[in-house]
Design a protein around this nucleic acid. Structure first.
Lengths: 189, 189
DNA sequence: TCGACTATGTATAACGC
DNA sequence: TGCGTTATACATAGTCG
């Protein structure tokens, strides 16, 4: 992209590297923005320079928002993946199969739908699903530790904010609905 | 960058938009990777297609890791103050009308259809979503949007997995099916 | 360090199958 | 629908001031 072809490996010269960083960072964020607008999708990009400075782009409500969505997504993928493995490798295990799980979920979905869905219902449903899924073991303990730490941060933040928001949202569902003890994934904000 | 200049606004033609998404997504992730290698910095990019599929790049341990770091940088200040501001003003400001919400839902419906679900599935999905949306419209609409996205992701996943399970439960399960080639989201191993 | 400036490599819009 | 090709717009490496 310039006077000569560039090999994709760490630029040795510190100065050149810094210059390239400025240019390419700008280019990347521009591309991210163009992608989000042209294709109407949610994009988040986060860049940490090695001097510790943060650069970001997000067309969603916030980078935190999309990253939490990311986290939820990966969580669910991970759990469903684990679930599939269990289902396939031990079809006769004592755990619920995925098929049973989905059936149960759909039943509940219909029931709930008949009564009219509310946010609380959806969260409950999601809780049920997650709880059932979590019955199936994940072997990735390191990952779980990381997530727990993340959860703690969130709960702390929730408590902190809830105090301030209490005046404005006296009719919000009580906190325990949102952050049940076993929840690892759902944190909506 | 092609046969003609492109204006940065949502591509109207659905097909063109999808094609552009594939190309530009690939390009963006490539650029992100190049930036991280050439300049030796931490980069994370997360893209959610409207059908709920996730695409990502991160040279750090994981996007979750970047999330942690990101949180430590901005959450305590910018994010919380933003939330408080939202809380203070949300009583009087609307984030999205029902019309806009439905429009968006329909757009997403189109996209999902393009990804191969049946019309019946989609109608069902849309009904559920609209029911949910209408029931709780009186509450924080911004929050609703986030939750809605999450729900759609999960429903899409459930349907996707159900197809897989249907196959797996009728035939004998060929193990290699577990790791579908199209998985683009799993980065934890 | 800091922008401009180009020459040149890349990305990609429109086509073609 | 998706991949390959081509023509063009864009991004940017090296350079100069």
């Amino acid at each position: 992209m310039g006077r000569r072809k560039v090999e994709i490996k760490r630029i040795q010269d510190k100065n050149s590297r810094q210059v390239a960083f400025c240019k390419r960072r700008k280019g990347l964020l521009k591309k991210a923005k163009a992608l989000s607008i042209l294709c109407d999708v949610d994009v988040a990009a986060v860049i940490f320079s090695n001097s510790g400075r943060l650069h970001e782009f997000s067309n969603a409500n916030s980078v935190t928002g999309i990253l939490q969505r990311y986290k939820s997504h990966v969580e669910a993928e991970k759990e469903i993946s684990a679930e599939i493995q269990v289902a396939e490798h031990s079809k006769y295990s004592r755990f619920m199969t995925v098929g049973e799980l989905l059936q149960r979920t759909e039943r509940q979905l219909e029931e709930t739908n008949a009564d009219g869905l509310t946010v609380t219902d959806l969260i409950h449903l999601e809780n049920e699903l997650q709880t059932a899924i979590i019955q199936i073991r994940s072997r990735k303990e390191k990952q779980l530790l990381e997530e727990n730490k993340f959860l703690e941060d969130n709960i702390a933040r929730i408590k902190k904010n809830r105090k301030k928001m209490a005046t404005d949202f006296t009719d919000l569902p009580p906190p325990h609905i949102i952050c049940g003890q076993q929840r690892v994934t759902l944190n909506f904000f």
